[in-house]
Amino acid sequence: MTEEALKDLLYKIADDQLILGHRNSEWTGMGPLLEEDIAFSSMAQDKVGQSLAFYNLLHQLGEQDPDTVAFTRNAEQFHNCQLVELPSGEYDFSLIRHFLFDHAEFIRFQMLAECPIEEVAQVAKKLKGEVKYHVMHANTWVKQLSNANEEAHSKMQSALDYALPYALGIFEPSKYENDFIEAGIYAGEKAIETQWKENIHMVLEEAGLKLPDWDTLKPVYGGRYGKHTEYLQPLLSEMSEVFNEDPTADW
């Protein structure tokens, strides 16, 4: 497996985490109840911290430093899936996105924890615990809200229906799928997707939410190859507004 392939993998993981962490941080100070405001903020911080860990791995592979990479690239240079860049919307969508994404990430980290590249395995092993709490949080919330009353149930179902095609975009195959599988880096996107469908199915069933027939859904691809929605560039411009006032300055 080439270094280029490895970088491709690390970039998409890091970009996903940074953009989702950024989006979720928008709720800090404005959450639906105080305690959840705090919990959701912690998880947003975890995500940004996770992205930093992966940008650091990339830096060790010769890429630019994390700040430069995160704060100076344009949208088409980002490899995140489109799911994470969508506006935060209301809490139903933010929660469902967090649920769908972190289930996938948990499986990814479990696989990468066994990766033969020691540095990657170490990071994945460590971060897995964080994501385990995220998944506990997401499962509990999705179940509690969806089962609660008509209003919440229908909001959660609509948010799910809207998010699912984008969520399938998490698993958009890369050019290097076979290389990863052959080198035993991880079992590839298809494998994560299969496991993910099983895991979320169990929770959603308990939550009383309906999953559509997977065959009827058209995954939203493109993000992994730099194709994004209209929302990513404004997000990045906002994120780097101060940084880019003087990128050489020490802030």
Binding site: E35, I38, A39, Y133, M136, T140, W141, Q144
Partner: peptide
């Protein structure tokens, strides 16, 4: 509202 949620909140607070 429930003890599971109380734990989720307690952990981060």
């Amino acid at each position: 509202p429930t003890e599971e949620m109380a734990f989720l909140f307690a952990k981060e607070q």
